[in-house]
Design a protein around this nucleic acid. Structure first.
Lengths: 213, 213
DNA sequence: TTGTCTTTGTACCGTACGGTACGGTTCGTA
DNA sequence: TACGAACCGTACCGTACGGTACAAAGACAA
């Protein structure tokens, strides 16, 4: 009987020392500013005042460094303990809007954009660690949180749907539309698109038209 | 009175000889297979049986080559002459579904994914030609076509909305959801997501719930 | 103080790749 | 046949960058 394969356990319980976190923060800054090509080992060592030898000792090689940057950023998102019970219909809707707003704020943030660009640029390599990392530590986490929220709404008869994942995807599409890909391609968002709360409100409005009880 | 700036006229009327098109097709193949790093001048010259000197003569430098690949692929999409008048409500809805299906087919195609990955990876360079090219020759074209279609539907009282661009974005979100970004990140689409027509049908169904007259 | 460990800064190496030069070949034209 | 243009294949150059080695400096325990 073969052992259960321990896929995707990489970077599971990784922990970085404060010094390493400072260096990774520097790396994030370089990435945000100039993209992948701006993140050279020599450049990072210079701006972070550390030695290349330390970089290679800590992260193995450049790929390990990139993966560490992604893992470090993912480790920064903390999940609030589900914001208590959803009291009534109105506050539940408020929670939905808040969730959508936060989703947009994360996706449109410059660090998220930079890391998405990095992972997408690397996504056609053999193993594709970065893409998997970003998906499993980012999108799938958010998706799980959203499903829990939506199912709570269904349980209280605020919403009506069969598949929570499908409902979440519709909410995602209504909120994000093509703005994310346009940001990734370098277009700057319009004024209306920068009003995250307004966008989220419209999206939830339409979501209720489709899935409201 | 300043002259109107001729922005984005680059690659406006560009034309490639058959030989150049064959080489660009080879470049596309390399891109699809191995991403940006796989498209080296030497490698392209080898697989396309041409000389590096010709590459530099035709395209200037490597950046010009990349831009030419994007422009070439964009030049391949032809717009059917709006498929005649939208006879009745049912055929109009069919046209909408066909449009959404084609949109998904384009976005999820491997060449589109490869070019999006390329442009996104290059999007934090100084000028960002590739991203602008992809946006203006790809997304904006599709968007214009969609707006025309939607406004025809509104004119015949099949649909009801204020802003055609906004309506299109909702349709886009309903159809694409987060599948595009997940594909770009290297995740393979699920079986249901590969049923493009079914996805388009559901999206249009929901779109009519929101904007049907 | 001495010894050990970690880190820094610099210097160095090898290689991959962008870009150029050039001889040889094909092909169209007179 | 002669000529010129375009092109192919190969060889070459310069450089940027990943990765390694090493001397010097701080930190800390005995």
């Amino acid at each position: 009987m073969p052992l259960a394969p321990a896929i995707d356990t990489e970077f599971e319980d990784i922990f970085f020392t404060p010094r390493q976190e400072a260096v990774l923060e520097c790396a994030l800054g370089l990435l945000v500013e100039g993209g992948e090509k701006a993140l050279t080992t020599a450049g990072l060592a210079r701006t972070a005042n550390c030695s290349k030898e330390s970089l290679y000792k800590w992260f193995g090689d450049r790929d390990g460094l990139l993966a560490a940057v992604v893992a470090y950023q993912a480790s920064k998102v903390h999940f609030p303990p589900e914001s208590g019970a959803t009291a009534d219909a109105e506050t539940f809707r408020t929670h939905l809007i808040a969730f959508a707003t936060e989703l947009l704020a994360v996706l449109f943030g410059e660090t998220s954009v930079a890391l998405n660009r990095l992972s997408i640029g690397q996504s056609n390599r053999d193993d594709n660690r970065l893409g998997r990392l970003l998906l499993v530590r980012g999108k799938h986490m958010i998706s799980a949180k959203a499903r829990a929220l939506l199912e709570a709404g269904r349980h209280r008869n605020y919403l009506k749907f069969d598949d929570a994942e499908e409902a979440y995807q519709v909410l995602y599409g209504l909120a994000v539309r093509d703005v994310h890909i346009r940001l990734l391609l370098g277009e700057t968002a319009s004024a209306a698109e920068r009003d995250l709360e307004g966008q989220a409100r419209d999206a939830v409005q339409r979501f209720y038209s489709l899935f409201g009880a």
